Amino acid sequence: MPKRVIVIGSGIIGASAAWHLAKGGADVTVLEAGEPGGLATRNSWAWINASWGNPEPYFRLRQRAIAEWHRLEGEIPALAVNWCGGLIWDLPPAELDAYAAQREAWGHPLSFVTRAEILAREPNLRDVPDHAFHVAEEGMLEPLATSQALLAAASALGAEVLSGSPVKWLERGDRVTGVMTDDGVIHADETLVAAGVHTDSLLDSVGITLKLTSPAGLLAHSKPAPKLLNGLVMTPGLHIRQTAEGRIVAGTDFAGADPDNDAEALAASLQHKVEAMVTGAEGLGLDFLTVGHRPTPADGFPAIGRPRGCEGLYTIVTHSGVTLAAALGRFAAEELLTGRRDALLDPFHPDRPALS
């Protein structure tokens, strides 16, 4: 008899887990409080990367995740990752060079590019530095469309996706046995919590503490324009990419900026910087802004796995959902259905001291 699994949350992590579970033969129900696609996902800058600031174990996990996105594209034709590469010069020169040397030592070389080479890749940029680095393996995707494609693929394998179905609490006896919703209890053999910023409160309902932060990140979205950018561009204080429909999405960095109670002014400032940096964007104008709250475990790294002493429960919470989704969905499905845990997850157990 198929294992019955509830997935709480239909953002890119939950959607990936649902598809991998359904592919593995599970009877899957996805519960989403709002509209399919989640909240943090649709407000993401949507960069797939293994970039700076990460210790080697996290870098290795992100590298694997990039490979898993390539695999997933081959299995779900509706997915469309743009493997456009990224230009990076958002660190002081000495730090940027040290970062490149570290990646070289880890077997992940970055390509040194001169000013002329930067402009050959991105001819519409102004005020570029004398040198930067290019990472060919990086990509971007349209986050909401990607989540919806994963959910549709899961549904085609028999998964049930229920929107407008908030979970009030987890049901627990000797083990977690399901969830309480407005329509009553839904029972399951396993419950996977991929509920973003609501993860900690759901775990608290069964006596599990997981320290979580939810910093706000604002992104400015321009009006649609003809193609002005070929890839991702990371500069000091401004990260930009152009979406499939032509909007330039900008943040102070990939996470977006803290709006600090003045979202409109910050978005206008970001759009002004875009128009000053990109030839052809002059007068383009701001179309809208988004403010997403990034689910981030207290030490900044993912929390993935079964909390000890609570059978029937699995959780995934991470800020880097877009990068990691393809890998974490696969790893969660394998662990839930076969008991095998990928060694790359060893440093990221939810019971580590920093989170309790």
Score class of each variant (00 low, 15 high):
84 C>T: 09
335 E>A: 01
202 L>V: 14
5 V>T: 13
5 V>W: 04
310 C>T: 15
15 A>D: 01
228 L>F: 01
238 L>P: 01
291 V>F: 14
109 P>V: 07
279 T>R: 15
38 G>A: 02
241 R>M: 05
178 G>S: 08
218 L>P: 05
349 H>Y: 11
337 L>P: 01
27 D>M: 00
318 T>L: 04
163 S>L: 00
201 S>G: 14
244 A>D: 14
165 S>Y: 12
296 T>K: 08
235 T>W: 11
173 G>E: 15
9 G>P: 02
175 R>M: 05
169 W>I: 13
287 D>Q: 12
249 V>H: 06
266 L>A: 11
246 G>Y: 06
231 G>F: 04
182 D>T: 11
116 A>Y: 12
295 P>N: 09
273 K>N: 14
218 L>H: 04
139 G>W: 01
10 S>R: 02
294 R>Y: 12
55 P>G: 11
178 G>Q: 06
241 R>V: 02
225 A>Y: 02
250 A>K: 01
267 A>N: 12
160 E>R: 05
331 F>H: 01
262 D>S: 06
205 S>M: 08
108 H>Y: 10
316 I>T: 07
96 L>F: 00
172 R>T: 13
214 S>K: 14
144 L>W: 07
177 T>A: 03
116 A>F: 03
4 R>E: 04
254 F>C: 10
176 V>E: 03
247 R>F: 05
126 R>Y: 09
320 S>Y: 09
310 C>S: 11
27 D>N: 13
270 L>K: 00
138 E>I: 03
262 D>A: 02
238 L>F: 09
117 E>L: 03
146 T>H: 07
35 E>D: 12
